[in-house]
């Protein structure tokens, strides 16, 4: 593979994503972990751009960074006293969890390296057209209409349920 500006930027995004994900799981302060998670989400959005999924990259930034991350920070604010900000980790659990996740990573990497049909699938450089219009057609007009409606009902149910669970109990 020739070393062009594009590959340089790709590796930059990959490095940012992985390094900040590592920070999310190792940093002791939970607010710092939340901001590292923001960098990870931006990095994944950049990788979506490299996969020519422009609409998905914008959605990732808007929904994850603008929505879910703000929700997480609100959760931190409302539940963490000064003591709870720091995350306690027990040593035995650290070793066990580290061993399990490392074994999982080795398994996945072995599968990835040894599956023959995935070997030669490289970016052929074809420029896809902007995806937004076609995604809109597929979701609102064609084969994904029913899942779209189902997922919107699910979102409504989740919102009502969240409001119901988190409100203060009214005793009469």
């Amino acid at each position: 593979m020739e070393f062009t500006l594009k590959t340089f930027i790709f590796y930059g995004f990959a490095l940012i994503t992985i390094a900040s994900a590592l920070a999310v799981v190792t940093v002791r302060n939970i607010v710092h972990a939340a901001f590292a998670l923001m960098v990870t989400l931006f990095g994944v959005a950049g990788l979506y751009v490299f996969l020519q999924a422009d609409f998905l990259a914008a959605t990732q930034v808007i929904v994850y960074v603008g929505g879910i991350l703000v929700l997480i920070l609100f959760g931190v604010m409302m539940t963490s006293g000064r003591l709870e900000m720091r995350i306690h980790i027990e040593r035995g659990q650290l070793l066990l969890g580290g061993g399990i996740s490392l074994a999982l990573l080795m398994l996945l990497l072995t599968v990835i390296a040894n599956t023959p049909i995935w070997k030669n699938l490289t970016d052929d450089g074809t420029q896809l057209a902007p995806t937004t219009e076609r995604i809109g057609q597929l979701i609102l007009n064609e084969k994904f209409l029913l899942p779209f409606e189902v997922v919107s009902v699910l979102l409504l149910v989740a919102l009502i349920g969240a409001a119901l669970i988190s409100r203060k109990e009214v005793r009469d």
Binding site: T17, I18, A21, L22, V24, V25, T40, V44, I89, Q93, L94, L96, G97, G98, I100, S101, L102, L104, L105, L108
Partner: peptide, 12 residues
């Protein structure tokens, strides 16, 4: 890598 880091966070 992201997946196993997430598993690590959930476990520890």
């Amino acid at each position: 890598i992201l997946f196993s880091l997430g598993i690590f966070a959930v476990l520890t």
